[in-house]
Every structure is written in C-alpha cells, then in structure tokens.
Design a protein around this nucleic acid. Structure first.
Lengths: 129, 129
DNA sequence: GTCAATATTTGCAATTTGCACATATATTAT
DNA sequence: ATAATATATGTGCAAATTGCAAATATTGAC
C-alpha cells in the first residue's frame, strides 16, 4: 500500500502533478538560449515557473547525463571559472529536433488535461441548475 | 540506464505524457455522473479522450481499490446482471471534496505546462527574425 | 464443446523519483 | 587558522509507480 507522493498536500496549497518527460524538454529549451551548466539550469528552472514543483538536483543532473548519452546535448568541463569545475552543456542539432517533437507531445498532453478540466467545469455548472 | 517508456515514439505519432495523479480525478469525475464498475469506467475513460494514452486495466482497478481505502469511493458487488459479478463504485462526499481540490491541482499543472509551451513558441518566433 | 466478450485481480519486473549523503572548490565570517 | 556557507556534481538506495502477462470466472454465440 504505497503512500503516493503527489497526494501529500497541506490544506490550502496547490500540488501540481509531475508530468513524465517534462523536465527534459524544459532543459533543452533553456539550453536553446545558450550553453549552461547543471547548477545554473537548476536555478533557471526554479525561476521559470517551477517554484511550486520542487526540482531535485539529482533529477536534473541525471536527465542531462542521459540526454548526452542520447546525443541531444554535449558537454565540456569548465575549469576557468572560480569555484568547483562545471560541466557545461550545449544543445546539439539532434537535441533541437527532438525538442520540437517533445513540445508536440506536450501540446497533446495539454489538450488532454484541458479537455478534462473543461468537462469538469461544464458538468459542475450544470449541477448547480 | 533506463529505457524511458515515454520516449518510445513512432515517427509522426504524438506521445502524450503521463501525469501522475491524473487517472484518479478522472475516475472520480466519471463516478460523479453515476455509479459504475471498473470495466465500464475503463471503457468510458478511453472514449473520453485517452485514446492516445492507453489505459491499462490493472491501473484502473488498483486506483479504484486505493481510493476506496481512502474513503473517496464505496463499492458493492452486483450479481444480478449477466456475466461475471461487477464491483460497482459510487462517489462519497469525501471523494467529491477531494475531486475539487485535485482539479485545482490539475489547473496548476496546466498553467505550468502552458507557460512552457507559450515560452517555447515565443522564443522560436523570435529566432526566425 | 469451444471461442469470444465481459469482469476483476494478482505477480513481477522495470521504470522513475525522492532523499540523504559524499565530494570538492572558493569565499566570507569569526 | 578554521569554521561556515555557497557553489557544483554526482552516487546509492529505498520507495513509488507502471506495464505486461497471466489467472480466474461467468455468460452467450456458434
């Protein structure tokens, strides 16, 4: 009997759901602007609109390494900057193509989600009458 | 090195993402119309708009049992109808309340998703210039 | 009698995530 | 000096979640 992580919610707070394969296109999108290292991406993700959906560093680093294996990004170590070395990622052409198709998938996801929300609202509207 | 189920896509097909905790509100919503058994709900889910996101029977039955444990639905066996007996679920008051808060969560999820899609489109629009 | 449709459920392996920690460098405070 | 903090990247492991396959049982059609 699993406890269901997403069902834990404090009263009065929103608890947006995890969407599988949402993080990866977000990372590729940020890399489309300019190359960056994981820690920076983590920060930009949070300020982008994921403040309510806490992003775990390990998830981000793992996603980046996985995408590198798939040839969607490439990385190089940067020792020049102060502090610990950074692994700087940049988007490949393949990554750019995949990003477009993933956004297509997410549009489909969004349609499904909105279809449900609208249906719920319509149904509740009729209930009141 | 996991293979990532959601990344399997045939060329030219959309592959909408799984949203954690999306199935449960959908089931509660269908039960808000009238009591129903699992097999019927499975069928109504598919025709509702999940034709592209295949729903596995085991997932549906498990979600129903879990929600019963939580007091969101109640069930009774129906032996009267022909064929194998059916476990008929109906929504509880608690289920009704939870449904509303889960839809709120999904609205937040939808906002995040659309925020990303819009940002992507805007960025790509600027690229072209 | 066999096949298909209906209906519910379990088992198991694979996937995915969250949390805690390990490591290391540079900066700032004490 | 050294302790604490911010930066930066990772690993290990348990728990959550899913997908697939199969087991079971009833009814109706051929």
């Amino acid at each position: 009997m699993p406890r269901y992580r997403w069902r834990r919610r404090l009263r009065g707070t929103r608890c947006p759901r995890n969407i599988s394969g949402f993080l990866e296109p977000c990372l590729l999108f940020l890399l489309h602007h300019h190359p960056a290292h994981g820690y920076e991406l983590l920060d930009r993700l949070r300020r982008f609109g994921f403040d309510k959906l806490e992003v775990d560093p390990s998830t981000v680093y793992r996603a980046l390494r996985w995408m590198e294996m798939q040839g969607l990004v490439e990385s190089e170590w940067d020792f020049k900057t102060s502090g610990p070395p950074r692994r700087v990622y940049r988007l490949t052409e393949e990554g750019d193509r995949i990003l477009a198709s993933w956004v297509d998938d997410l549009r489909e996801t969004s349609r499904m989600l909105n279809h449900f929300i609208k249906a719920y609202e319509k149904h509740m509207e009729q209930e009141k009458k």
